[in-house]
Simulated scan of single mutants.
Amino acid sequence: MAPSRALARSAASAFVRPPPRATLRLLFMARRISCLAAVRPTALQPGPLRNSPATATSTRSYSQAPEPPDYLNEAELHIFNKIKAELAPVKLEVQDISGGCGSMYALEIESAKFKGLPIIKQHKLVNAVLAEEIKSWHGVQLRTKAV
């Protein structure tokens, strides 16, 4: 055998074969679980049930209209107040997701006015309320829910 081939074979035998995919997947999952346990130990421990008396007092009450948070900019506050006045929501979140230029917004609205309406009609109702504003937007992400 030529010396260059013998050298190539000995170099090739020095490499170790990688473990099978299943082994890699198990190692990855074990590492991920250990990271979760280190960061959030309570996430893996059982907690009280949703409808138990312990959580009944800690659940959020939607009896009154939401107040605008302090961190909203002027355009977000305008949208917040307009939706609040027209739809009387129990939960309302407005966020400029365009990077600050005001061309795309994410809206999350829960209102009793949506009761009995399919999602498409809920969205049409929001679009009717914000018709003037939407004309200048690039896009909008709507999440609506009936209360």
Rank of each mutant, 00 (worst) to 15 (best):
residue 130 L to H: 04
residue 70 D to F: 02
residue 73 N to Q: 04
residue 57 T to V: 14
residue 101 C to H: 15
residue 117 L to A: 08
residue 129 V to P: 10
residue 75 A to L: 09
residue 142 L to E: 06
residue 141 Q to N: 07
residue 100 G to D: 12
residue 86 E to L: 02
residue 123 H to A: 06
residue 112 A to V: 11
residue 83 I to G: 02
residue 80 F to V: 04
residue 52 S to D: 15
residue 76 E to G: 03
residue 94 V to H: 08
residue 64 Q to Y: 07
residue 61 S to C: 11
residue 90 V to Q: 09
residue 70 D to C: 01
residue 50 R to A: 10
residue 130 L to K: 07
residue 106 A to G: 03
residue 124 K to W: 00
residue 106 A to N: 03
residue 49 L to C: 12
residue 96 D to M: 08
residue 133 E to Y: 00
residue 106 A to S: 11
residue 87 L to G: 05
residue 64 Q to C: 08
residue 82 K to D: 01
residue 63 S to G: 15
residue 54 A to T: 15
residue 123 H to N: 12
residue 72 L to M: 04
residue 116 G to R: 07
residue 100 G to V: 15
residue 75 A to T: 13
residue 139 G to V: 02
residue 131 A to I: 00
residue 57 T to M: 09
residue 85 A to F: 02
residue 131 A to H: 02
residue 61 S to A: 12
residue 141 Q to S: 06
residue 138 H to W: 12
residue 74 E to T: 08
residue 52 S to L: 10
residue 141 Q to D: 02
residue 75 A to K: 15
residue 114 F to M: 10
residue 80 F to H: 08
residue 83 I to F: 06
residue 47 G to Y: 13
residue 99 G to L: 07
residue 64 Q to E: 13
residue 109 I to A: 03
residue 62 Y to N: 10
residue 58 S to E: 14
residue 71 Y to M: 01
residue 90 V to D: 09
residue 66 P to Y: 04
residue 66 P to K: 04
residue 129 V to S: 03
residue 95 Q to P: 00
residue 116 G to N: 08
residue 115 K to L: 11
residue 84 K to Y: 03
residue 97 I to L: 05
residue 56 A to G: 07
residue 65 A to D: 05
residue 51 N to M: 09
residue 124 K to I: 00
residue 125 L to K: 15
residue 116 G to T: 06
